[in-house]
Design a protein around this nucleic acid. Structure first.
Length: 440
DNA sequence: TCTGGGGTCCTAGGACCC
DNA sequence: TCTGGGGTCCTAGGACCC
């Protein structure tokens, strides 16, 4: 918490819906719902006219249609949202170089790095008023709610106090007075599960939360979360405004209108997602070591399976192969409603010669001498899933996982498209590396 | 009312290494 | 032959946010 109100939070009002109303005058003043329009879609943003009918974010679109049949239901135009967001972030960077976007429609701005005569309540309030005017100019008429306070937490609370189209400055020293009567759910990180845990120990408001000891909180909600709540209940928050955050994972997922059972279809869908994910990796000049497959079954149970490669990859075939194999570990016979493929443990873009310094170049056949050397290296050998092809008495297969002295090989034949998965000790003399996998 | 898509962070257990 | 503690990596799941 700072001595002066130097953190600003901006939140564009009903952003996606507002962009639609801006671009299509016939929608102005009418209920607009942006989100999934398919059978299993949910609402991303509802205009204030639609909210009057009880429509809100995360509500199934089917329910929103029931509550507000006359609303315009739109799938969304993310290009337009990104473009408008870019203009907003540009405007904010004109105020201070320290701008931390939280999403397309939200950001923190560190006013301590802004060019201001002082940081009095009067000065930052004037800046807030000016910002809201310019916001409308650069967005073509969109409104925003602005909050200013002595920390991220307080600035965010402030922006929520007078929505839409509001400006609230919480003066230094007033933080706890503002907070105490509020529900604990205003604290970021307190969702339905935590709220229920707290309710069970008789805590509903921040004032009640303040009464709970650190030990008790940790017992109820866990260590990290407990400490966090303990501090936030007292308005203690020293998180800095961080302008550039590095991505930690990239993923793609799709929910289907009907559950899928056909294995061949599931494999094809996973392949397509692997292709999308690796396209995005390459565009971002990133690569990653861990491939995760996400499957949501007919009963909404969600399962993930992941495998970590010895080195980072952005290769579509490699990611697809690993994802396919992970899929084969799950029982999908009851039907699949969602599939997802993600890559994490990201590294900066690897050069074309990534493997030039490693023990054997990728894509090159490994000669007999290297093969026997690899065998004697045992667990030290870095097998490359998807790249090393093995043959033994079972025929030919490709490596899809390795670690702890064991290489797992998948044999796939026309007769058995799902393949057989076998594990070998890395120093098993029956294993021979013969060639890289065929191009697809 | 049957529940999106893109993320982040945390927890807990097991393997492995020193 | 048995016992150990800490650190790190990996995996699966869950809570949460916009």
């Amino acid at each position: 918490m700072r001595a002066e109100p130097t953190i600003l939070h901006v939140d564009l009002d009903a952003f996606f819906a507002a962009v639609e109303q801006r671009d299509k005058p016939s929608l102005r003043g009418k209920p607009v719902v942006v989100g999934g329009v398919g059978g299993r879609g949910v609402v991303a943003t509802a205009s204030y006219e639609a909210r009057a009918f009880g429509v809100h974010s995360a509500m199934p679109t089917a329910e929103a249609r029931r509550r507000c049949p006359n609303a315009a239901f739109l799938a969304g135009r993310f290009g337009a949202y990104r473009e408008t967001s870019r203009a907003v972030m540009e405007l904010l960077r004109g105020i201070s170089p320290l701008v931390e976007p939280l999403s397309l429609d939200e950001a923190f701005v560190d006013l301590a790095a802004a060019d201001l005569p002082d940081h009095s309540v009067a000065t930052v309030s004037a800046l807030g008023r000016e910002l809201r005017v310019r916001m409308q100019e650069v967005t073509g008429g969109l409104t925003a709610s602005v909050g200013i306070g002595t920390s991220k937490f307080i600035a965010k609370i402030a922006s929520e106090l007078d929505k839409p189209d509001g400006l609230v400055v919480i003066a230094p020293g007033m933080e706890r007075d503002v907070l105490r009567p509020m529900q604990v759910t205003v604290i970021p990180g307190v969702g339905p599960a935590t709220a229920e845990h707290l309710r069970r120990i008789g805590v509903h408001t921040v004032a009640e939360l303040e009464e709970i000891s650190l030990e008790e909180l940790i017992r109820v909600v866990g260590k990290a979360h407990g400490r966090n709540l303990y501090e936030l209940a007292r308005a203690h928050d020293d998180r800095p405004v961080v302008p550039e955050r590095e991505a930690k994972s990239i993923s793609v997922e799709d929910t289907y209108d009907t559950d899928h059972v056909d294995r061949r279809l599931l494999v094809a869908l996973v392949d397509r997602q692997a292709s999308k994910v690796t396209d995005r990796l390459r565009k971002a000049r990133l690569s990653g070591r861990t491939v995760t497959l996400k499957v949501r079954l007919h009963d909404f149970s969600t399962h993930t399976r992941s495998a970590t490669l010895p080195g980072p990859t952005d290769d579509t075939r490699t990611v697809a192969r690993v994802a396919r194999t992970l899929l084969s570990e799950l029982d999908t016979s009851g039907g699949v409603r969602l599939l997802g493929v993600g890559v994490s443990a990201l590294a900066d873009w690897i050069q074309d010669d990534l493997f030039a310094d490693s023990e054997e170049p990728a894509g090159e056949p490994v000669d007999e001498e290297t093969t026997s050397t690899l065998a004697t290296l045992g667990r030290r050998r870095a097998w490359l899933p998807g790249l090393d092809v093995i043959h033994d008495e079972h025929g030919e297969g490709w490596v899809w996982g390795s670690g702890r002295g064991v290489v797992t090989v998948r044999f796939e034949t026309a007769a058995s498209p799902t393949g057989r998965v076998l594990s070998f000790a890395a120093d098993d003399p029956a294993l021979h590396v013969v060639a890289p996998p065929p191009e697809e």
